[in-house]
Computed example of a mutant assay.
Amino acid sequence: MQMTRREVVGRYKGSVLGLAWSFFNPLFMLVVYTFVFSVVFKSRWGVSQDEGKTQFAIILFVGMIVHGLLAEVLNRAPTLIISNVNYVKKVVFPIEVLPVVTMGAALFHSMVSLVVLLSAFALFNGYLNWTIVFVPVILFPFVIFTLALAWILASLGVFLRDVGQAISIVTMVMLFLSPVFYPMSSVPESLRPWIMANPLTFIIGQTREVVIWGHMPDWLGLGVYMLGAVAVASAGYAWFQKTRKGFADVL
């Protein structure tokens, strides 16, 4: 918790607005993406005939929050060990917690973005769906899965420095190959299995169900996702612990 707090505060240390940037950053990106896709490209979700730009923006923002959580953790993961050499060489320290610290910081920013989302939804609609209480339940298996990938990437980043360059491309590809900017109905039938294979797709869809439309989560789907996430996390943690023995030699 102390390291997570330092990670969050240290990012904005010395800036005039401080932690307020954690609020303005997602808000600014929301405005830009909304302008490009709803005004320039005139994209629509097709949920209603009188769909406005605000509704488009709110639905879009849900996808941005989920992807932002994944991207922030994975983009940082390959350099976590490299940028904390002292923890590896000179201090008896459980370095497996470094990805957890990054996840904690990413969750903080996601929670700020979620507050922005819910505030906007309440402002434009005059109510909040009670099903928003299920958001943590939906995000929990996603957090476990993302943490599993972070352990793997943190280890690979020590031995293969190209991983840090490649992962930013991968996260960007995952952004556009998930229903962040478009509904699944607009994807050709032949390509939908590929979009559904993206681990972001199911979580984005479920988050929209409980936040935007007030529906109950897909409990069976979440259960399957959780089992898969735990399996990947177990393998990722085991891989990290097995390869950490060589960190000091490489660094």
Rank of each mutant, 00 (worst) to 15 (best):
F61G: 02
H109R: 15
K90A: 12
L19T: 01
L114I: 07
T102M: 10
V32F: 11
N198I: 04
M3N: 12
V116H: 00
F108A: 05
S110L: 02
L74K: 09
M174A: 07
S234C: 09
Q2M: 12
V210K: 10
G164K: 14
L17S: 01
S155W: 03
V210S: 10
A71Y: 11
G18T: 07
L27I: 08
A166F: 15
V112D: 02
I212N: 06
A248Q: 06
T207R: 05
F35M: 08
A154D: 04
K89W: 06
P179V: 10
L19K: 00
V232N: 08
L60Y: 05
V163I: 14
N86Q: 15
A20P: 00
L153P: 02
T171I: 10
V92T: 14
H67L: 13
K53M: 15
F35G: 01
Y33K: 10
S234Q: 05
T171W: 09
D162K: 06
S38P: 07
P217N: 11
I152A: 13
L160E: 06
G46E: 04
G221K: 04
A150V: 13
A71W: 06
V137T: 01
H215S: 15
V158S: 01
I144D: 10
V112Y: 00
W130V: 12
L30Y: 03
N125K: 10
I138Q: 03
L74G: 09
V31K: 03
I132V: 13
M216T: 14
F181W: 11
S22K: 07
L118A: 01
E51K: 06
I59R: 04
V31M: 15
M3Y: 15
F134C: 00
R76K: 12
V39Y: 09
L222T: 02
D249C: 09
V143C: 10
A238E: 09
L251N: 04
T201Q: 03
V250N: 07
G126K: 12
V97H: 12
F240A: 02
G205P: 00
H67C: 11
P136E: 09
V180E: 10
S22G: 09
F145Q: 12
N129A: 04
G52L: 12
V230R: 05
K42W: 13
G14C: 03
A238F: 04
V66S: 01
F145H: 11
D218P: 03
G164C: 12
L69K: 08
F37W: 15
F23H: 00
I65V: 05
G228D: 01
F247V: 04
L19D: 00
W21Q: 01
I81Y: 03
K245Q: 15
